[in-house]
Computed example of a mutant assay.
Amino acid sequence: MDRAAVDRLPQIKNIVFMAAHKFGSSGNQGLTWAMNTYLPGLVAETFTKSRISAFSTGCVYPFVNLEDIGADEGVEPNPPGEYAQSCIGRERMFQHFSQVHGAPGRLIRLNYAIDMRYGVLCDIAQKVATSQPVNLSIGHVNVIWQGDANRFALRALAHATVPTSPLNVSGPETLSVRWLATELAKRMDREPVFTGDPGPSAWLNNSAEAFRLFGYPEVPLARLLDWVADWIARDMPTLGKPTKFEKRDGRY
């Protein structure tokens, strides 16, 4: 967030913007807003001739009913919690300066990226491995392999718009958290334990437009389950950053 340091960066054709603050945001709202709103404004004001693919989050949407198959890009953002509100601020900064300077871009509304060391599947697998209850308060999710999310974000640079516009990035399935835990438990030879009851709504992301542009993710869900179950069963390292996907109040 050092303006002079940002000014010294080279003016380049393409930028992927990933700077953000989520974990601990409920205890440090000032830093959360500075990182998620002020910094994007600084970058967008500085790189006025660059195409910018800016990572955002599907958490900017309100909860949607399960029969709606997820929020598409036409749904107005209206989320709970300051973290998601600050992410709307990020989007608004990029939209404003994109409009002012004619700079093309896309806003990558992502949920949820999967790495063996991090993500919703990692969170669930760790609970299963240690016989801790899996919380079903958020009963359904979307997931996508991190490599596929990266690929979509890079390819989005070739589909940038003025002003910048949102593009949902997620997997194609609406996934039951109970089913995911059961499938991971089978692979790990464990018995899942559950707590809470799924509501009729969840943070779900309809990525049909991204699939139209780029095709479907290359890594299928069953392979993700195999990878994560094997990783956690062997007690391999994790990033120690729970996604807190099960929270409904937007406080992280």
Rank of each mutant, 00 (worst) to 15 (best):
M1T: 13
D2K: 07
D2L: 11
R3L: 15
V6K: 00
L9W: 07
I12W: 07
K13G: 15
K13L: 09
K22M: 15
S25Q: 09
T37Y: 04
L39C: 10
P40Y: 02
V43D: 03
T46Q: 13
S50M: 05
R51N: 07
G58Y: 00
V64Q: 05
E73L: 06
V75D: 06
V75N: 06
P80H: 00
G81L: 06
A84W: 08
R92N: 15
Q95Y: 09
F97R: 06
V100S: 08
G102L: 10
G102M: 09
A103K: 05
P104E: 02
G105M: 02
I108P: 12
R109E: 12
Y112P: 04
Y112K: 01
V120E: 00
V120C: 02
L121I: 10
I124E: 07
A125G: 10
Q126W: 01
V128E: 08
P133R: 00
N135A: 06
S137H: 02
S137Q: 07
G139H: 02
V141S: 05
N142I: 03
V143H: 03
W145A: 15
A149N: 14
L154M: 14
V162D: 12
P166D: 04
V169K: 02
S170C: 15
S170I: 09
T174F: 07
L175G: 11
S176F: 04
S176G: 13
V177M: 08
V177F: 09
L180E: 03
T182W: 04
T182I: 06
R190D: 04
E191F: 05
P192V: 03
T195P: 07
T195F: 01
T195E: 13
D197M: 12
A202G: 13
S207I: 07
R212N: 14
G215N: 06
G215W: 04
P220D: 02
P220K: 00
D226W: 04
D226R: 00
W227A: 14
I232Y: 05
R234K: 13
M236W: 10
T238W: 00
T238M: 03
K241A: 12
F245S: 10
R248K: 06
R248L: 11
R251P: 01
